[in-house]
Design a protein around this nucleic acid. Structure first.
Length: 561
RNA sequence: GCGCCCGUAGCUCAAUCGGAUAGAGCAUCGGCCUUCUAAGCCGAGGGUUACAGGUUCGAUUCCUGUCGGGCGUACCA
């Protein structure tokens, strides 16, 4: 509907140019907005206010000229001036309800577009270190990241989901030391317990499993505990495999799948880290100081240079990160989105600086980042501090077990990623019936029940007859619903370009609300077969759009509740 | 100190990259089930959008400053 109105206005403007009322070189951008109040019509445009100066007239007078010059159109009932110079468009019923037919034709593809043109995009998300089970913060990353992937796919992109495992480096050493201490019967606080060791109970479970000689089967490897508490290398391998398996189970419970699990250790094994360092040195962006090798990140907007190679010979974390992103680029991903927690935002400058310093013709803003703010977990009216090392945190799997996958996904992705999020466990548990996700799912189930009820009454739904009788829909709420349905493609487009999954949640809630209101005031199964078929068409279209929207969030659309 | 994110109803959050009277949910109060699922609907109260300026036809949105909160500011990741 919007594109049609835009071209209508563009035609009008060029006619006005021909008439000499607008400079021929003027090219105001025509924008059509959704109205909040139906007294303002179905759609509105600010074109008169935006181009009044060009025409040398007052906005309202100019709006008058534009309206007079509007050609006749089958989609338009009337257009009128309002407020400071808005032009409000009142669309015909036929034009509004045409969306129902479109929805049936496109079914589960309704709302999708091909603006991505099948180009490759890689989305890296979660990327938790294999040093413990996934917690709520990872859950937010998983929910938001997966939803971004689905949105990109709906916008025509070829998406690769990728998880980067930091299975090398100091944190892993720390993990190995912690497990080894447990293997030797030590507990946190004991003499000999590693400083900053991981204290969680899962470390003890892990150690017990190692000492029992268990075999761990994870995604791409198998490793058996050697029962030798002095064999640190074996402990390290075992611990990483063990925790990877745990995280795989967490993700499976959340129904988040990845196409690629990328191991940091492989960058070392393949010599990619060394190669990256050599290139940076060759390009003259490094220097030695105090026994360490530094990267001149200040030449790329950082406030101080950063250490690449420590005095102990090991690389700092961002060096393999640069190598990793070079690898992404070389794999042909012209677009990359990294979804990660805001506590890691300092890596952005360093990774981008490193990529620029490689002189590999990688664009300056590469890669894109979506940072989600911290999740505060409330339980018993108190904040649960998330600390992996202290072992006190709410795991993602706990949450899914208690609240359910759908509700967990909804809570974690229904808010703007840039806003801090409070996850109140008690609220999610004790008032689970008030979870907003049920409100949306209930609308879907209700619509499904209409068809069941119809069958019980020995009636059937003649879809073709309904489509032929859409003009029987004369209620304001019906037109409101149709117009809301027509907005879905726009929401997908905007949410996709802005990496804003929460817009889908908001839209679905609005649509469900409009439907519930309609459902309560007008019966769908009425005597008049034409009206009945038409109403079922409308509600089934609503059902399709709710199902499509929930699918974008990775949430199920139940047929009954 | 510096950088990033944020500040909207009692609480948790929206507001489609500047639009008309700032919206939902929870909580509070009052109505609606012999009729398609009451996990629902209808209504009421609740706001100087932290504060002060600026930009323009128009600002919750953009700019500057102040205050307040979170995160970062490692030869941890």
């Amino acid at each position: 509907m919007k594109p049609q109105l835009i071209s209508l206005i563009e035609d009008t403007l060029s006619a006005l140019k021909d008439a000499g009322k607008l400079p021929a070189n003027a090219a105001p951008k025509v924008m059509i907005e959704n109205t909040k109040d139906k007294a303002h019509g179905d759609y509105a445009s600010n074109i008169a206010m935006a181009s009044a100066k060009l025409a040398g007239m007052k906005p309202r007078d100019w709006a008058e000229e534009i309206i007079k010059a509007l050609p006749e159109s089958p989609i338009l009932n009337k257009a009128e001036i309002a407020g400071p110079g808005f032009i409000n468009f009142f669309v015909t019923e036929a034009a509004s309800f045409a969306i129902v037919d479109t929805i049936f034709n496109q079914a589960n593809k309704f709302g999708h577009n091909d603006s991505g043109k099948g180009q490759k995009v890689q989305v890296e998300f979660v990327s938790a270190n294999p040093t413990g089970p996934l917690h709520v913060g990872h859950g937010r990353g998983a929910a938001v990241g997966d939803c971004i992937c689905r949105l990109l796919e709906a916008n025509g992109w070829d998406v690769t989901r990728e998880f980067y495992y930091n299975d090398a480096g100091a944190q892993i050493n720390n993990l190995a030391f912690s497990v080894q201490a447990r293997c030797k019967g030590l507990a946190p606080g004991d003499e000999g317990w590693p400083e900053d060791g991981y204290r969680g109970d899962y470390i003890k479970d892990l150690a017990d499993s190692f000492m029992a000689g268990d075999t761990i089967e994870s995604a791409d490897q198998s490793f058996t505990g050697t029962k030798d508490a002095d064999d640190l290398e074996a402990i390290r391998h075992f611990a990483v495999a063990y925790l990877r398996r745990e995280q795989d189970l967490d993700l499976k419970a959340f129904e988040v799948d990845f196409d690629v699990y990328f191991l940091e250790s492989s960058l070392y094994a393949d010599g990619k880290v060394e190669k990256t360092v050599e290139q940076l040195v060759a390009n003259g962006f490094t220097y030695e100081d105090g026994g360490a090798l530094w990267l001149k990140t200040t030449e790329f907007g950082d406030d101080k240079d950063r250490v690449m190679r420590k005095t102990d010979g090991g690389y700092t974390y961002f060096v393999p990160d640069v190598a990793y992103h070079l690898d992404k680029w070389q794999r042909g991903f012209k677009r990359v989105v990294n979804e990660q927690g805001a506590d890691h935002h300092s890596t952005i400058t360093r990774v981008r600086a490193g990529l620029q310093a490689l002189k590999a013709d990688i664009p300056q803003g590469y890669p894109d980042y979506v940072l989600h703010q911290m999740v505060t977990v409330m339980k018993g009216g108190e904040e649960v501090k998330i600390s992996k090392r202290a072992g006190s945190y709410v795991t993602l799997r706990d949450l899914i077990d208690q609240v359910g996958r759908d509700a967990t996904r909804y809570f974690l992705s229904a808010r703007s990623p840039s806003s801090q999020l409070t996850f109140d466990i008690d609220l999610a548990l004790s008032q689970s019936n008030d979870n907003p996700v049920y409100y949306i799912q209930y609308a879907h189930a209700r619509i499904c029940s209409i068809l069941r009820k119809l069958n019980e009454q020995g009636l059937s739904w003649d879809q073709a007859n309904g489509l032929a009788n859409l003009d029987a829909l004369s209620e304001d709420q019906e037109k409101l619903l149709a117009n809301k349905l027509a907005r879905f493609p726009e929401i997908i487009s905007v949410a996709g370009t802005q990496n804003a999954p929460h817009m889908i949640a908001n839209y679905l809630h609005e649509l469900a609300s409009d439907f519930h209101t309609y459902y309560n005031s007008h019966k769908t199964i009425v005597e008049d077969a034409n009206l009945r078929d038409a109403r079922i068409c409308l509600t089934q279209a609503v059902r399709q759009v709710i199902a499509n929207g929930l699918d974008l969030m990775g949430i199920s659309a139940p047929e009954e509740m």
